[in-house]
Design a protein around this nucleic acid. Structure first.
Lengths: 167, 167
DNA sequence: ATATCGCGGATATTGCAGATCCATTTAGTC
DNA sequence: GACTAAATGGATCTGCAATATCCGCGATAT
């Protein structure tokens, strides 16, 4: 028997902006300390829609991952050392920290509704889904931007800086 | 500094139908061997929209989790022992097996585009996101419907059967 | 035969991601 | 001080997928 899964899984997918911001944060991590890059520079660097990217960068600022300075020569930089920024922080800043599986307590609905005394503990299924989400978060929490930089070729930061500031 | 995450995370959330079918599969696992329950019975049991639920149940049939018999007294039953059905199989049958993070290779776009020889290996960020997805899948693969039944009170199956067949 | 069920296709409806624009604020530069 | 470059916040538009329903077909028990 061959399994047939839906070809496309709309609901589960992370938005594209997740990839954008992970790469943008990695790029900012390659700047010299104190240097900034504007939303327009980052958008040019990856050929992304600038206004929308700016909105997402703001979300990272609110989450404490990035710091922003306004005015000429302003822009974004990391708000803390790269070793203190986990991928989990970035992803949850962009996509929200809400667990993907939300228990709506359907065990209390319909003809099969359980009495309240049987619902003191969390739904077993919801607990298992929460376990899986915890495993996902633990995995992402174990990787920092510094780890990512460490896996890049040593020549990457210099090239990134020159291309980012060009033009 | 207090973190501010988006209150709602549309893209990441699993559809509600995931919860529906996890519960429906758990319910079917409590039937006597060979017994079936119709989509209408399951919809009544949880107060769900019957036509839509039927569609999702068909997806579980295509995935080899459920077996269906047509005609009067027909309905759905597990296609294999409960110990052989993992939560991962159910979730991926409903929501698709596509990983939530899809690498669009933006490292090859824009001014910062990397040369092809730097892209032989998979993108580091994509690899880390894939690691996290693997941890999530491993967690769900480690739980079977039999495990879920084992955590239910011993009186549950009898009550489930009687309420499901009632009316 | 006929009523009961699953199956497949087609079709609304709705909410959010993706995307853009503008007015405001902030802060450097001349 | 005026100008300018940048982030910030609000409002808005569009496209697509999850949700939800209906109908006709086929299968099968009684």
């Amino acid at each position: 028997m061959d399994l047939q899964y839906p070809r496309y899984a709309g609901g589960v997918k992370l938005p594209v902006s997740t990839e954008w911001l992970l790469h943008c944060a990695t790029t900012l991590a390659q700047l010299e300390p104190g240097a900034t890059a504007s939303a327009a520079q980052l958008a040019d660097y990856y050929d992304l829609p600038a206004p929308y990217l700016a909105k997402q960068l703001q979300a990272l600022v609110r989450a404490g991952v990035l710091a922003a300075t306004t005015g000429p020569r302003g822009g974004f930089r990391l708000a803390r050392p790269a070793a203190d920024i986990t991928l989990l922080r970035i992803v949850e800043a962009v996509d929200g920290a809400a667990p993907p599986y939300e228990c709506r307590e359907i065990r209390r609905q319909g003809r099969g509704a359980l009495p309240p005394e049987d619902c003191r503990d969390a739904c077993v299924l919801a607990a298992k889904m929460a376990d899986a989400h915890r495993a996902w978060r633990d995995s992402l929490r174990g990787v920092t931007l510094a780890d990512i930089l460490g896996e890049l070729p040593p020549t990457a930061p210099a090239r990134t800086r020159s291309r980012l500031m060009a033009k």
